[in-house]
Design a protein around this nucleic acid. Sequence first.
DNA 1: TTGCATACTGTTCAAATGGACAGTATATTT
DNA 2: AAATATACTGTCCATTTGAACAGTATGCAA
Lengths: 211, 211
Amino acid sequence: MSPYELTAQQQRVVSYILSYRSQNGFPPTVREIAAAFGYRSPNNVRQHLRLIEQKGFIRLLPGKARGIEISASLAAGEYGEEGERGVPFIGSVAAGKPITAIENVDGYVTLDRSIFKGGGLFALRIKGDSMNGMGILNGDIVVVRKKSQAEPGEVVVVIIDGDATLKRFIRENGIIKLRAENPAYEDIVLDPGNSIQVAGKLVGVIRKYGG
Amino acid sequence: MSPYELTAQQQRVVSYILSYRSQNGFPPTVREIAAAFGYRSPNNVRQHLRLIEQKGFIRLLPGKARGIEISASLAAGEYGEEGERGVPFIGSVAAGKPITAIENVDGYVTLDRSIFKGGGLFALRIKGDSMNGMGILNGDIVVVRKKSQAEPGEVVVVIIDGDATLKRFIRENGIIKLRAENPAYEDIVLDPGNSIQVAGKLVGVIRKYGG
DNA sequence: TTGCATACTGTTCAAATGGACAGTATATTT
DNA sequence: AAATATACTGTCCATTTGAACAGTATGCAA
């Protein structure tokens, strides 16, 4: 076991602490954790806490009741530190404006920060079926990390005629193309003079069924 | 003094609690508050807390260490929304256990509640490609609403051999089938005696690329 | 003056809680 | 087979902590 990875049990304990804390406003006691998991000995929990502390995920304040301090990385997962409001949701894109400009922000989407880590994220709704081939459907919300340049092979958000569409950034024999993941669409070939606005790189998808 | 306004002292106490809490991750004890204000008696703080509670700004949880719950109005100023906790994330399914039993919970996933409304939600990771046809890929996290019975046409989570898989619930000529959204898979025909455990109904998908 | 609410001190007790000691069990690695 | 790490049970103790009882003081309104 890598020194910085938690075991399944330890992970469950951490999750419980986080959820208890966000529900009650303070961390659980050792005995409350034991009760939640059905442990008959508080000491078992202490052992877990010690190991979790050694791996740097929490800090135990000796002698203090409920003295479990969540370390920054986990706290971020809990309510997003800077972005507790979620990441900006971009409805439609006003021509000429940077994509995440206030003008474009139509709301905020809460993300799970333990899944979507890091900064510079935003969300937008995809129109069209050009990415059906990789399981992205019309109406899906995609999570994007801001980025103005694309690496070959990456799936990026490009702004075409005020609409955000996803395309795979391809370089073949020195020629740069934007390729849809759908055989019904043809590649868009970029001639060197032609510039297209890259807004960011695809990092996730959120889809809602019904309603 | 209006019944819903705090006195200057009470306000100082409240703001100390808030700042202590955001700094340490848990509320202070009565004695810690006393020490911070130079009070020589813990009872003075208790009196303050009682009055603050009467005015509705906090709630005291009797007998609990650091049992000071900040009421919604104050908490809102501190970190935005009310304590939304995530939905349980089910890693693998222990045979014979209800799917959301604590044994199965591997963590919690934060959802955007304006997208995924209502209760009874949980999340699990999908294995296999049986639902490729509707844009759900191997490894995707699906959001599911708990439900033990399926309506014809619904996509439901069924537990087969300890794995959660998605299938469309079909009724054709009175015969009930579970259909994969992938031509490579054949329908599973349920004879009346044969029972399969329905865990819930598909309401969403979350996918993460890279990492 | 007589209440009455707020703002304190001082003390004591019982419950809540952290934390130590002493084990058992079971994998996995060496 | 031995060593090691994780995952537990069970018990006990000292501290932390909430909470009660018994006061004092002060400003304010009836």
